[in-house]
Computed example of a mutant assay.
Amino acid sequence: MDLTLALVIGVVIVALIFDYTNGFHDAANAIATSVSTRALTPRAALFMAAAMNFIGAHLGTQVAQTVGKGIIDAPQGTHGLVVVCAGLIGAITWNMVTWYFGLPSSSSHALIGGLIGAALASASLVHWDGVVEKVVIPMILSPLVGFTLASAIMIAIYWIFRKRQPGPTNRGFRYAQTVSAAAMALGHGLQDAQKTMGVIFLALVVGGYQNPNDPIPQWVILAAAGAISLGTYAGGWRIMRTLGRRIIALDPPQGFAAETAAATVLYGAAIGFGAPISTTHTITSAIMGVGATKRLSAVRWGVAGNIVSAWILTIPASALVAAVSYWVLHLIVE
């Protein structure tokens, strides 16, 4: 086995490890609200989320194309594979740090930051126009849209059900949350599994095993879908607690509104624009949006501030780890 093939296999394995960590890191995104409102048991919610993640991963490749072609140009051969691997190591490291502290940061932006950091360290080309258009602008807009849309849905629910008794209403929305949580998990698979597909495709192109104009191979789609589903089923209990209780104590109508708004934003970004937005940012801002309709003090803004700090740090922190990883791998491999 030559060095290039060995590195391609190694990068694919590291990418699937990232995909797995993405699954258990972001499992809370889809199900925290349903679990916290007791619409679903934790294990049933995880199983449903894993299944919907797998299905969602097969619904498109627009985001994968953006990640694989629109962020960096890694050089051909072993040097480019070292760049891609270093980017993945930066993303995985940041995922593990934020998981340990229970902070719902973005696996998507950790991956983007990792690729950018490795590219800069190796003097590879970064498509800054693509970063701004497909990452930075959606990174700013998606939480704002999630917050606003969730608030609007929540206000509509308050108005429509204003004369109904709280007990029957809450029971009805517990059932409705099964659907909204499934939609959220489907959107998570549509968004996040595709990011791993894009990185694996990039590694195949750099290694000379794939033409950049070819479609994503089916085995890449299946592998990415399977890895994120297994990671999701493993669960992310620390982050689930933060999203489900520490930002706001949710009731079933609020959970339904937050999940519906977040899922809508995820589908629109992936299918309409091919933008790799953060499921974490979107659902967290949607939870804040439904809480703010009740009263501003209902949202624990101190916890929200810690989460926003993690958002701001994600890209530069993962970029820094990726740059260091590149220098180490460069010395070892090249």
Results as ranks from 00 to 15, higher is better:
Leu250Glu: 01
Arg246Glu: 13
Gly235Leu: 13
Gly274Phe: 05
Ala261Gln: 12
Met240Thr: 12
Ser309Ile: 14
His281Lys: 05
Thr260Gln: 07
Met288Phe: 04
Ser309Trp: 01
Ala275Tyr: 03
Gly235Asn: 12
Ile283Ala: 11
Ser285Thr: 12
Thr232Asp: 08
Ile287Val: 15
Arg300Pro: 02
Ile239Asp: 01
Trp237Thr: 07
Asn306Asp: 14
Arg246Ser: 11
Ile247Trp: 00
Leu266Ala: 06
Ser285Tyr: 07
Ile247Val: 09
Thr279Glu: 05
Phe273Cys: 01
Val303Trp: 06
Ile307Trp: 11
Gly289Val: 04
Met288Gln: 02
Ser309Asn: 03
Leu243Ile: 15
Tyr233Phe: 14
Tyr267Asn: 10
Ala292Met: 12
Arg246His: 14
Ile271Asn: 10
Thr282Lys: 11
Phe256His: 09
Thr232Arg: 05
Phe273Glu: 06
Arg300Cys: 06
Arg295His: 14
Leu243Gly: 07
Ala298Phe: 02
Trp237Gln: 09
Ala269Glu: 10
His281Ala: 05
Ile247Ala: 06
Ile239His: 10
Glu259His: 10
Gly268Asp: 06
His281Asn: 04
Leu266Met: 14
Thr282Asn: 13
Thr284Leu: 12
Gly302Asp: 09
Ala261His: 04
Arg246Trp: 02
Ile307Met: 01
Thr293Gly: 05
Ser285Gly: 14
Glu259Phe: 06
Ala262Leu: 12
Ala258Pro: 08
Pro252Asn: 07
Arg245Ile: 15
Asp251Arg: 08
Tyr233Glu: 08
Thr242Met: 08
Ile248Pro: 08
Thr279Cys: 02
Leu243Asp: 10
Ala261Cys: 13
Ala269Ser: 15
Ala258Met: 00
Pro253Ser: 06
Ile277Trp: 09
Ala269Lys: 04
Pro252Ile: 03
Val308Gln: 00
Gly268Gln: 01
Ala292Asn: 12
Asp251Gly: 01
Pro252Glu: 03
Thr280Trp: 03
Ala262Ile: 11
Trp237Glu: 09
Thr280Ser: 15
Ser309Asp: 00
Val308Ser: 09
Asp251Met: 08
Gly235His: 14
Asp251Ala: 01
Ala262Tyr: 08
Ala258Gln: 05
Ile239Cys: 03
Leu250Ile: 12
Gly272Ile: 11
Ser309Glu: 09
Thr260Phe: 09
Pro253Trp: 00
Val299Ile: 09
Ala310Ser: 15
Gly291Val: 09
Ala286Trp: 02
Thr293Glu: 05
Val303Asp: 04
Glu259Leu: 00
Arg295Ala: 15
Ala249Thr: 05
Ala263Pro: 11
